[in-house]
Amino acid sequence: MPTRMVVNNSSAQYHRLTKSSDDGFIDLQFVRPPPKVPWKAISLAVVLFVVGSILLTIGALLLSGTLIDQKYADRTWPVLILGLLMFIPGSYHVRLAFYAYQGYQGYSYSDIPDFGD
């Protein structure tokens, strides 16, 4: 069985560290800067929302038969699908931008993608 060797270095002097008020941090380090408004993303969301709404309205009129003759009914579903594909993300991001602008709790401009600007 190996024996442990205990080194007793009595020449070391220990003392309690003093508590200093200067810890190297300042309060401004922990304040978040206001987020940059992603204007390009918001404008794209508004364009998607408006064009999607127009396409959905045209698609509904095509589906009801009030806009064109029934022999052109094959144009109805692509217009509706394209309108939905544009309306859904556009309305979502416009809602996020509106709530961030109004200052609702939990909504920020940082939730909107900014295209790497």
Rank of each mutant, 00 (worst) to 15 (best):
K40N: 10
Y72T: 10
P34E: 14
L28A: 15
L63A: 13
L48N: 09
P2Y: 07
G24R: 07
S53P: 03
L67C: 05
G83T: 00
G24T: 07
G24K: 07
G103W: 02
T57D: 05
I112N: 00
H93I: 03
L55F: 15
R16D: 08
R4H: 13
P89E: 02
S20T: 14
G103Q: 04
L61P: 01
G65V: 02
Y99M: 12
N9I: 05
A60L: 08
L84W: 04
S64G: 13
L28H: 11
I58G: 00
I42A: 02
I54G: 11
G24N: 08
F87Y: 09
S110L: 13
V31L: 13
K40Q: 08
Y109V: 07
S91W: 06
F115E: 10
Q70D: 14
L63W: 08
I58C: 04
I112C: 03
L63S: 14
P2W: 03
L67Y: 05
V79Y: 01
T76K: 00
T3V: 15
Q105G: 03
A73C: 05
G106D: 07
F87H: 04
L56C: 05
L63M: 12
G106A: 01
V51C: 08
Y14N: 07
D74H: 07
D117C: 07
Y92V: 02
S43P: 02
W77K: 05
Q105F: 08
Y92S: 08
M1H: 11
P113K: 12
K19H: 12
Y92N: 11
Q105R: 10
R95Q: 10
A45N: 04
Y101H: 09
L56V: 02
L67A: 06
L48W: 03
Q102H: 07
V31N: 07
Y99Q: 11
I26P: 06
S11I: 10
K36Y: 08
G52N: 00
L61D: 10
A100G: 03
V51E: 01
T66P: 02
T66E: 13
S43Y: 01
L55W: 09
M1C: 12
I68M: 12
R32C: 05
R32K: 14
K71A: 13
S43N: 11
Y72S: 05
G59F: 03
S110M: 09
H15V: 12
V7H: 13
G103R: 04
D23H: 13
S108W: 05
T66G: 06
A97Q: 00
S43E: 08
G24W: 04
V7P: 02
L17M: 11
V7T: 15
H15N: 11
T66C: 06
Y14S: 13
L28N: 14
P38H: 02
L62W: 02
V94C: 06
G59A: 09
D114A: 12
G106R: 04
Q105N: 10
P38C: 02
A97D: 00
G59T: 02
S20Q: 12
Y107F: 15
V37W: 07
T76S: 12
V6A: 10
G116I: 02
H93A: 04
H15I: 09
I58M: 03
H93Y: 11
L48V: 01
